[in-house]
Design a protein around this nucleic acid. Structure first.
Lengths: 117, 117
DNA sequence: CGGAATCCTCTAAGATACTG
DNA sequence: CAGTATCTTAGAGGATTCCG
């Protein structure tokens, strides 16, 4: 997992926030995690999240959630009880990405049936 | 480079086109390549594209462009002359991604200055 | 239950050299 | 100029085990 921004030449990097956005959402599972915190059940526990994501490993899910949290995109709420309970949800900053995620989803819905796949 | 869609469990995969979109735009340089074909100079030659992208290697740029072309997102126009000349541009399908790309860029512009980076 | 720690695999991407 | 062909490598991600 890369904490640094992708290295982009000046012309693109200085003029746009594109590289910044990419640095926060790129990674095999980041966007799909954010997306799965959208919708009807926006507060999800660790194992439920893992179940939703399918084949992701404990390790990768854990690391990715930490990154998303330290980037301020999700909120981790821990209940000090036994057995432990931790809930993840989108922060306000994370919620501001929802329009982008929705748009990507819609693009896929439209174009996955194009003659040219 | 992966030709197959990311493996997503049924609940997410069947209901949404999100996984489909991800499978077409994920990769270290795909989105930034698409984005760099947006804007003032939307028809770009191979080496100029390489220059714009900075540190990408010949090999990676070549492979990525092939994938984008076979996914119908960009158009490759070859001029049979010596020295060779090849121009890349967004297809209609690729242009339909511009709103998503613009939104991502704008999100970065807004949030790269947040107190929480 | 929700992880952390350890070790390991695999592939996307890089470096370099060459060519029509 | 616009690529291929080889070979190499980093590091993201997986599998397994252990813990409070």
């Amino acid at each position: 997992m890369n904490e640094e921004a992708v290295d982009i030449p000046c012309e693109l990097q200085e003029e746009t926030g594109f590289a910044y956005t990419l640095s926060r959402v790129s990674g095999k599972y980041k966007m799909i995690i954010l997306y799965s915190l959208t919708g009807a059940t926006p507060v999800v526990r660790f194992n439920e999240l893992k179940r939703r994501l399918g084949k992701i490993s404990f390790r990768t899910l854990s690391l990715t959630l930490k990154e998303l949290e330290s980037d301020g995109l999700i909120i981790r709420k821990e209940y000090p009880q036994i057995p432990p309970k931790v809930e993840y949800s989108l922060s306000q900053r994370g919620q501001s990405l929802i329009p982008v995620l929705d748009m990507m989803c819609e693009w896929g819905n439209i174009h996955s049936n194009d003659p040219l796949n």
